[in-house]
Each structure stands twice: as C-alpha cells, then as structure tokens.
C-alpha cells in the first residue's frame, strides 16, 4: 500500500470515529444489583502475576482491548490520564489484552505509552468468563469485588463525570464511610 493510500484510510477511520461522537463519552452504566466480578488471574508484560483479589479494598477499572481495535486505541490515552489522576488516590487500572503476544503489545506501547499493568489473555480464556461480547468493554469493580459499572465502546475515561463517579465509589466504601456516627 502507498503512503497516500494509508493516509486516506486513516482519514476514513478518523471520520468514522468523529461521526459516532466518540468524544461524547462520559457515561457509565450502573449495574444493580452488583454481581461478584469473575476471577481474573493473568500475567503482565513484565511477567508479574495479577489477580483481582490482590486489589480487594480498591476501585479497579478492568478494560478488555486489542491493538488492532480502533476504539480501544482511541480510549487508551484517557485510561492513562485516569491512572495519572486517580492512581495516587488508590484507583487501579488493568488493561486486559485479548489474544495477542507480548512482543506485539510491547511494540504497540511505543506509540501508546501506558504505565498501568497490561495483562495478557493470550488464549482468550479470561475474557470468556466475563460478560463481554465486543471490545472494548470496561468494568469498574468496587472495593468489595463487585461489578459496579460497565461501559461498552470507547469512553473518555478522564471525563469529569467518570472521575467523579469513581471517586464517589471509593468514598462510599472507605472505612470512614462505614463507621457509625
């Protein structure tokens, strides 16, 4: 393919994303009653194992994605900004890559640098235990390990409405909030 051809195709992608209103994405769907989150036990790019139970007591954002998925790429920088903003307050972000190997993801992160853990679900076994039918799909897990929110399709995860919801989720589950007056 020629460079011009690739640029043209890129413009089509941009027009597609612009046409869907991808930027207007500060919504999360609240899940009530909150179901227990399925298990998640995967290694990251550095070989470190993560389980969802490791993060009990914290709000966890679990994002299922792939490098070839345009909306996944679109929202990845906003997940990084969310991590930058709320990570110091205890929020955890886990990016679960579906079906790709570490080399491909490693090269991808040269263009899309992220600091939060990228977990490898190479055989797509983990995603099959979660209620996911399309990617990107993102879940917010409350400190008690339950699914509190879900987002299907890309979002701007550092949108003020989302940041506030996540902060509120942490506040309502903090030990201070649970103490009697």
């Amino acid at each position: 393919m020629t460079t011009m051809y690739r640029i043209t195709m890129g413009l089509i992608l941009v027009a597609l994303l612009a046409g869907t209103g991808a930027a207007d994405t500060g919504t999360l769907t609240g899940i009530e009653p909150r179901p227990e989150a399925p298990p998640l036990e995967l290694g990251d790019l550095d070989g470190r194992e993560h389980t969802l139970g490791d993060y009990r007591g914290q709000v966890v954002v679990v994002n299922f994605w792939a490098t070839w998925c345009p909306p996944c790429r679109e929202e990845l920088p906003s997940l990084q900004r969310l991590w930058d903003t709320l990570g110091p307050e205890g929020l955890v972000v886990l990016g679960v890559n579906v079906g790709e190997d570490a080399d491909r993801i490693f090269f991808f992160t040269a263009d899309y640098p992220v600091d939060f853990p990228l977990l490898l679900d190479r055989a797509a076994n983990a995603i099959d235990t979660w209620p996911v039918r399309g990617i990107p799909t993102t879940f917010v897990i409350d400190p008690e390990g339950r699914i509190a929110y879900r987002a299907i399709g890309a979002r701007e995860f550092d949108h003020p409405d989302i940041v506030e919801r996540l902060r509120e989720l942490r506040r309502t589950h903090s030990p201070e909030a649970a103490m009697p007056e």
């Binding site: 597609l16 869907t20 994405t25 919504t27 769907t29 792939a66 070839w68 998925c69 345009p70 909306p71 579906v98 079906g99 790709e100 055989a123 797509a124 039918r133 399309g134 990617i135 879900r150 987002a151 299907i152 399709g153 890309a154």
Partner: peptide
C-alpha cells in the same frame, strides 16, 4: 481469536451511550 473479536457481535445489549465497532 482475532476473527471472533473483530467481527461485530452476533447478539448484543446496548445501554444508552454504549456503542461498538
């Protein structure tokens, strides 16, 4: 695996604001 997830899902539930490509 890539084929499965690259195709639009055969069945899906969309809440307001949800979208997929």
């Amino acid at each position: 695996i890539a084929f499965r997830w690259a195709l639009f899902p055969g069945e899906h539930h969309f809440e307001p604001g949800d979208w997929l490509m």
